[in-house]
Design a protein around this nucleic acid. Sequence first.
DNA 1: TTTTTGACTTTTCAATCAAATGAGTCAGAA
DNA 2: TTCTGACTCATTTGATTGAAAAGTCAAAAA
Lengths: 205, 205
Amino acid sequence: MKPEGLVKQEHILEAAIKRFSHFGISKTTLTEIAEDLAISKPSLFYYFTDKNGLIAEVAKKIINEFLEKFENKLQSSSSVEAGLLSLVEVKRNHFKKYFLLAIQADGVDQLKVSNNLSEVYGEARKKTISLMSCLFKKGIEQGELKPMEVERTSVLIIDVLSSLDGCMKDKRFIPNINDFDAFFNKQEEVLKMLLNGLKSNTWKN
Amino acid sequence: MKPEGLVKQEHILEAAIKRFSHFGISKTTLTEIAEDLAISKPSLFYYFTDKNGLIAEVAKKIINEFLEKFENKLQSSSSVEAGLLSLVEVKRNHFKKYFLLAIQADGVDQLKVSNNLSEVYGEARKKTISLMSCLFKKGIEQGELKPMEVERTSVLIIDVLSSLDGCMKDKRFIPNINDFDAFFNKQEEVLKMLLNGLKSNTWKN
DNA sequence: TTTTTGACTTTTCAATCAAATGAGTCAGAA
DNA sequence: TTCTGACTCATTTGATTGAAAAGTCAAAAA
């Protein structure tokens, strides 16, 4: 595939993301995506092996966007607390932006989409853990936090946060953008509370 | 209904619980429950208004059992940490014992079962919050914890724990008793970490 | 040679309906 | 008061099918 091909592929991804995040994955057809781009449906198959392949690429794209934003915010964070809260902020915006697409909020069978996809999620998780671990390590070095197992702690916190994400999917009704805030506010609260126990300002060995 | 009637009702509840927790609510028929007890199906309707009524009573029964056990454990707890961990322990046993019945793990439509049922859950939640608040209050009085908003903190912690419960329901496969432990171990870890921030041993105003 | 498409086949899904199963009623027996 | 046989009604299940979507391919267009 030539360079122009990659541009086209990118256009397709964007069109797909628009539809997916607006109407959900299962409710958008390849024909619709093709029509949006004023091309024929078979063309899509030239750039992607099948619908699941397209979905997988979409997932990769928005996950990378998420990680990038988080990493950026993190760099401009002056404290561990600010860094942690930026994770919630980025998640909040991400969920609002991608709405239904908020991957798997829709009834998509993870495994069918691609064995690959679980890997993508796995990588994203690892990356997030690694970023948080770094944040903690720096916090410890600078005396903001007590010494502790940064990796283990990061995993735990990330698991708690994503289990709180899970609550959103319970909601029967169609997710309302405004309702998201309640969930993420709660996540902020939890983070602050957890952080409390990690801080060293009151800590004597 | 005479006193013997209540005994019989209790028998029915027990039979129902056996079936429900083994096969799930939607997979057990009233006929089966009646057969287990060697009575006729219409007899069930003498003691309960309908299947949903039966389900609601079952729910009440096991929720009360849960609260009782928690309250007992709590009384013999010597520290806030022991008290909190006893909550997880009781939950762990409860889930193992009632397996599929682990309320709503089965595909039961909450509202249909009875508007009443949501109230029952609401009451249980309130009660749990109240018990935990008490525990915290005592902990503060005895200098084990820093002063804080006990109610607010309890709500937050209970929400975190139950969102972690929620993860179990994601699991596609039939819940394996042994797998439960991983989930509850994680809950213990989280509790310990949260508790860290609440403790006063290192706290100066 | 790369990219695109019209015309095609195959798969998947939702609507329909009949049969079966389970929920729930009731008159009357114990 | 407690219980049941014989019933009705409602819901679920499975088979059928028609339509829509996914996916293929040979050949045209760039």
